[in-house]
Every structure is written in C-alpha cells, then in structure tokens.
Design a protein around this nucleic acid. Sequence first.
DNA 1: ATATAAATGTAGCGACCGCTACATGAAAAG
DNA 2: CTTTTCATGTAGCGGTCGCTACATTTATAT
Lengths: 187, 187
Amino acid sequence: MKKNEGKRDAIVERLADHLLTHGLKEASLRKMAVSAGISDRMLLHYFVDKDEMIATALALVERRLTALLDSARTESMPFQALLPFLAAMLNDASVRPYTRLALELAAAAAGGDEFFRTTARHIFTNFYEWIASVLKVEEEDQRAQLAALAFAIIEGCVLLDAVDSGLIVSRAMQGVALSNLNYYPEG
Amino acid sequence: MKKNEGKRDAIVERLADHLLTHGLKEASLRKMAVSAGISDRMLLHYFVDKDEMIATALALVERRLTALLDSARTESMPFQALLPFLAAMLNDASVRPYTRLALELAAAAAGGDEFFRTTARHIFTNFYEWIASVLKVEEEDQRAQLAALAFAIIEGCVLLDAVDSGLIVSRAMQGVALSNLNYYPEG
DNA sequence: ATATAAATGTAGCGACCGCTACATGAAAAG
DNA sequence: CTTTTCATGTAGCGGTCGCTACATTTATAT
C-alpha cells in the first residue's frame, strides 16, 4: 500500500525547482506537471488542489533557502563590510532565484494575497535574522536596528536590480561608505 | 470624422484608475472595459492590442506620479529627516497605489518582461531624482550617493511593508538615526 | 440625398486554466 | 483466488483569456 510516500517528496523537489526557475506566473498545473515528469491528472492525485501544491512546494523553497543561508554563514562583519558582501551574495546565481521568487511573492502580497504574504514574510524574516547573526556590532543593543537597516538597503537594491538600475545600487553602496555605521578604522 | 480624440483620453484616465486600484493582475480586457464603461470590443477599437492599451495607461500613471511628486515637493531636508518623511509619504493613501503597482512591475521585470522593466525603471528614476532634489547635503558631491542610499532604504521598506513587517521597518528607521549621515546638530 | 467612413453590438474562436468523471491496470489484503 | 484499494490514463467540462469576423447603426463628406 502507498508506494506514494517517497514519490511525492521527489515530485515536490521538482515543483520547487520549477518555481525557482520559472516563477509563480508560469506555475500552471499543466506546466508544473511537465516539470515533475507526470501528468497534471497525477498532480491532483498527490495534492488536494493547486493551492496545497504551491504551498507544499513553497515550504520546501523556504527550507532550501534556510539551508543555503546556513551554508553561507561566515565570520561576522561590521556594517560597512557586510553590505557589499550582501550585495555580491544577491548577485550569486544560486541566490538570485530566491530573491526573484520572494519579489514575486511580495508583489502578490501587496495585492492582497494573504497566503503569499505569510510565505514572503517567512522568507524575509529568515534573511533578516541571518543578517543579524552575521553582523558585528560595537554595542549589542544596536544589533536589531543595524540589521534592519542593512536588510532594508539590500532589499531596496534587489528592487533596483530587477529594473536594471545598477548605477543607483552602486551609488547607494558609496552612500553607505559615507556613514559612520560600525566603521572599524583599525580593522 | 473622429469624435474619438477626446473620448480616448477619458478612457485612458479610467484605465489608469483601474491599474492603480486593482493592479496588473486584474487587468484583463473585459475587466478594464467594465471600468472604462465600454465593451471590450470597443477597447480594441481604441487600442491596437492589449499591450498598447496597457502601455498607454501606464504612461499616464507615470505622468500622474510625476505630478504627485511635484505637488509634494517641500523644503530640502537633511538625510536623517528625509527618511522618516519618505516613509510617511509611502504610507499615504494617495501614494500607496503607485508603490503597489511599481512593485508589481518590478516583479514582472525580474521575471524577464522587458517592457515592464523599462516602465518600472522610469518610475523609480523619477522618484530617485525627486529624492535627490529634496535632499539637503553638506557637500554637493555627496548628493547622488546619499539620495541613492535613501532611495534604496525606502524601497526596501516598501517591500517590508508589503509583507507586513512593520517592526523591521521601524527598526531600520532607528538604524538610520544611529548614522552620522547629514546630521545637522544645529538645525 | 447618397456614398463613405467611423462607431458600436453580437457572437464566437481557439488557447489555456483548474479541476473532475470514468475507466483500466496494478498491487495489496483477505 | 478473490476482493478491495491504489495508481494512472483519457477525455472533457465550464471558465477566462486575447482577439476577430460580421453586421448594424451613426456621423460625415460630397
């Protein structure tokens, strides 16, 4: 009975791949079925409906991102070093699919979709907490604020990147250098 | 001949309204036609196809935003005062539809849509230049960088707002206050 | 007044969408 | 071996989509 179990997991992996490479806009049952190597009919055998299917695949995407961030953990860095580091990270080919998908989720959230809003918030919160854990601060009670600032700047750069405004991004990085935020003159 | 002229303009106004209140996702010919008070058949009488229709409506949205920013121009402000001002501005009910639509455009751009990318870039560039014109700097050669930084932070806050992460937004604003960026102790 | 051109209505095509009814083959349970 | 449950295929329904063919009314030009 139920040779399902393992098979369903394999399908979910493929669905997550599809979402990361093609985005939500291309996530019809028929297209997802092709990526999963089965028929759309079978997709609805493994999932009660499309909503549950997407939710399951997005949950895996979240887990993958968490793992990716864990593997990217480095020595802590002061604010001014962390920002260029993050900017480079978001341009990495292995990370971009996640930022692209998160952007799509956020846009859907702005349009009122509650499920996507919750999912996007999970992803953003994960990333924020990762930043907070990697940020080197002079005074511990500044950690939350400086991490939030770094996060906002980087997410702003994601938006600018999406519309090909690289010039503004590099100017913003120069702007960061003008600040005194966690600047360690001695290293 | 051609009693069109004025009528088409009125239709474009209604289409822009529709885009701003319902977003691109709800912009089917039939729905737009209802908002315009005509039939979908007539929409394709006034526009060659849906793409041109959306392009025309978005061009008006751009012009409206420019006018909105012009009317919101104030005395110049230093960096630390400008950021809370911008954050409040983006929460204004008259501005939010534009940020919401720009977010949707940016997400489509990240997915590869070249037309939406161009449109979103126009909108973002307009806003960036407005910020640069309102920012009060100590040294003129810092204007571009600080305006870019302010813009990135604010756009990041737009994303966070979309997913209901108001806590992180307020922390980011506190982070700004920790910096020395254009801080005028004497006023 | 008549001919021409523009404005508008009605109806529907073909594509994709999420989803389901029905049948058949395979496997597990008794 | 039989019965029951699961796995999978085929086909299609009802919906929305962008778009168009065809006809009709209305306005303009001559």
